[in-house]
Amino acid sequence: MSRLRQVLLALPLPFVLIGLWQVGVTQQWELPLDIRMANVPTPLAVLNRLRDFAFGGVIDDAFSGTFATHLWASASRVLTGFTWAALLAVPTGVAMGRSRLVSSAVEPTISLLRPVPVTAWVPLVLIVIGLGSRATVVLVFLACVYPILLNTIAGVKAVPPRLMEAADMLGTKPVARLWRVVLPAALPSILTGMRVALGFGWVIVVVGETVGVTTGFGSVIIEAQQTSKTDLIVAGMAFIGLAGFATDKAMTGLIRVALRDRPLL
């Protein structure tokens, strides 16, 4: 019953917005901040483009039916950068969370580097690595590394000393504490960091793809801009949003399976 109520409450707003959008475009509204609705594609044009981009057969240009190619290009860049980030950040975070010495040696450097936004890295990365897929992967890596690192450190530091004592008195060897207690206890926090990182990864991959590559959603919307295909821009935006949403859902599903119904520490 309340579920139905929720749906009924949520439904009108999108329809109102799409209606206003349609009317605004056909009436060529001039909105504040120089927003000229005449330059916006109609909802129907976007819908056609979405269908054509996904399956082809409607518009028949270079982008028809190329959705899967671009999705694969963007997703593989996100996952590659994310994987490298996780491989570096998890062990580093565990070491920093466990050892005062390692933390003192590494933490100040990280605090200095972290305020530099990933977008500020773009020009340097493009020159050092050159145009191409690699540069985008590196930018995704930079975006993913901090959330995973910080959440891993926090999770490891928050392991209750009581659980260490319990493990010790039950006969856990000191070296085995790491995977018997520290990692299981910190896992929820580490996975949360990974989830945040994946979100950042999808943001940055679009930025990275706007230069020097011909595949990926970022390159699609930039090329669409250069050829004034506004319907394609909006369609690309929609697919980027969907891809990020789907990745996040997959990640939360994975977290649920990994943690089963245990409480978050």
Binding site: L163, E165, A166, M169, G171, A185
Partner: peptide, 19 residues
Amino acid sequence: SGPGPDRGVVFQDYGLFPW
């Protein structure tokens, strides 16, 4: 010389592994 399985400890706050 350190904790060991010959001495079992029962803590007031249980100290069970939540996972």
